[in-house]
C-alpha cells in the first residue's frame, strides 16, 4: 500500500487537477452570472492549439499562453453574443462552440503545424519550467506537493481563494450573486446585468483556455488532436459536484485529478492481488457526479436564473 500512495502520487494528482480547476472555475464565473457553459471543452481544446502554435512560432511559452487566452476570449465572446444578443439557447450555442473548436483546431493543426513537422521541426514546444517559491517548495511537508509544479498550477491552487473573496466580500460579488439568481430584480436595482454576464462568460474563456495552455506548456509539450479529451466536461462535473462554490469546485477538481493520477498509477498494477479495471476508475468522476445529482450528498442548487 505504501508504494501506492506516496508523495509523488499527490504531486501527479495536483498536476492532473490543474486544468480541471482552471476550467471549473471558468465555468463557475459563467454560471454564477446565469450563463450555462457547455463550451468549456472547446475552449480548452482551442486554447491548447493556440498555445502550441504561439510557442512554436515565437519560442516563448508566455506568448503561447497569451495566444491561448486571446483565442479563449474570442470563443467566449461568440458565446456571449449568441446568448445575450441573439438570445440563442445556451446549450445549443455551447454544443456548436465545442464542435467548432474540435473542427477548427484539427483543421488548423493539419494545415499549419503538421507541415512544419514534416520540414523537420520538432513538435515539442518549449515549456514553462518549474516555479520557484523562494525555497518554500523544498520544505519537508510541502516539497512533495509543490516540487516541479509550474506556476500555472500554483495559480490554480490560489485562484479559488481569490475568487471566494471576490464573490463573497466585494460589491461586485454581490452583484454577480444578484444577476445569477434573479436578473430581472437585479436590473431593476440598477445592476448592469448584461455587462456582468459578458464579464463572467469572458472570464470562463480566459480560464478554460489557460487550462488548455497548461496541457501543452506544462504537461505534454505538444498539441494532439482532441487533446482536451473530455476535461471540459469533467470540469463541468466538478463545478456541479462543488455546488457552484469556488472552494467546492476546486476541491472536486482535485478529487477528480486524484482519480486520474491513481488510474495512471494502477495501470497494470494489482491492488491487494486484485486488478482494478482502469476504465471503471476513469468512470468514477462521472458516476460520482450522477450520485451527487441524485441528491444523495445533499441538495444541489444551481444559480436560479441559469439559462435565461
Amino acid at each position: 500500500m505504501s508504494e501506492l500512495f506516496d508523495a509523488q502520487l499527490v504531486g501527479t494528482a495536483i498536476r492532473q487537477a490543474t486544468p480541471l480547476i482552471l476550467a471549473a472555475l471558468g465555468g463557475l464565473m459563467s454560471e454564477r452570472v446565469g450563463v450555462i457553459n457547455i463550451g468549456l471543452e472547446g475552449k480548452i481544446l482551442m486554447g491548447a492549439f493556440a498555445a502550441a502554435l504561439g510557442t512554436l512560432l515565437t519560442g516563448s511559452p508566455l506568448v503561447g499562453l497569451i495566444c491561448a487566452i486571446v483565442v479563449g476570449l474570442a470563443l467566449a465572446l461568440l458565446h456571449a453574443v449568441a446568448t445575450q444578443e441573439l438570445r440563442t439557447d445556451h446549450i445549443v450555442s455551447g454544443v456548436a462552440i465545442n464542435l467548432l473548436a474540435l473542427g477548427l483546431s484539427t483543421y488548423l493543426f493539419r494545415q499549419i503545424i503538421v507541415p512544419r513537422e514534416e520540414a523537420g521541426e520538432s513538435s515539442v514546444v518549449r515549456m514553462f519550467g518549474a516555479a520557484s517559491l523562494g525555497g518554500l517548495e523544498n520544505l519537508p511537508g510541502l516539497n512533495a506537493l509543490l516540487k516541479d509544479q509550474s506556476w500555472l498550477t500554483l495559480f490554480a491552487l490560489v485562484l479559488p481563494f481569490l475568487l471566494l473573496v471576490l464573490l463573497t466580500r466585494t460589491r461586485w460579488g454581490l452583484r454577480v450573486y444578484a444577476v445569477g439568481n434573479d436578473s430581472i430584480k437585479a436590473r431593476t436595482m440598477g445592476v448592469p446585468v448584461k455587462r456582468l454576464r459578458y464579464l463572467g462568460v469572458l472570464w470562463s474563456g480566459v480560464l478554460a483556455s489557460m487550462a488548455g495552455a497548461f496541457l501543452v506548456l506544462a504537461a505534454t509539450g505538444q498539441f494532439r488532436e482532441n487533446m482536451s479529451a473530455g476535461r471540459g466536461f469533467i470540469a463541468l462535473a466538478a463545478l456541479i459536484f462543488g455546488r457552484w462554490h469556488p472552494l467546492g469546485a476546486a476541491g472536486a477538481a482535485l478529487g477528480f485529478g486524484f482519480f486520474e493520477a491513481l488510474q495512471m498509477r494502477l495501470q497494470g498494477q494489482p491492488v491487494f492481488g486484485v486488478q482494478l479495471p482502469t476504465d471503471l476508475l476513469l468512470m468514477l468522476p462521472y458516476l460520482l457526479t450522477v450520485i451527487a445529482l441524485m441528491g444523495l450528498l445533499g441538495k444541489m442548487k444551481p444559480p436560479s436564473d441559469l439559462g435565461n
Binding site: 456548436a96 462552440i97 464542435l99 467548432l100 474540435l102 473542427g103 477548427l104 484539427t106 483543421y107 493539419r110 494545415q111
Partner: peptide, 11 residues
C-alpha cells in the same frame, strides 16, 4: 482535412 465537415456543422 475532413474536419471541414465538423466546422460546417458547427456554423
Amino acid at each position: 482535412p475532413k474536419e471541414i465537415a465538423t466546422v460546417l456543422q458547427a456554423v
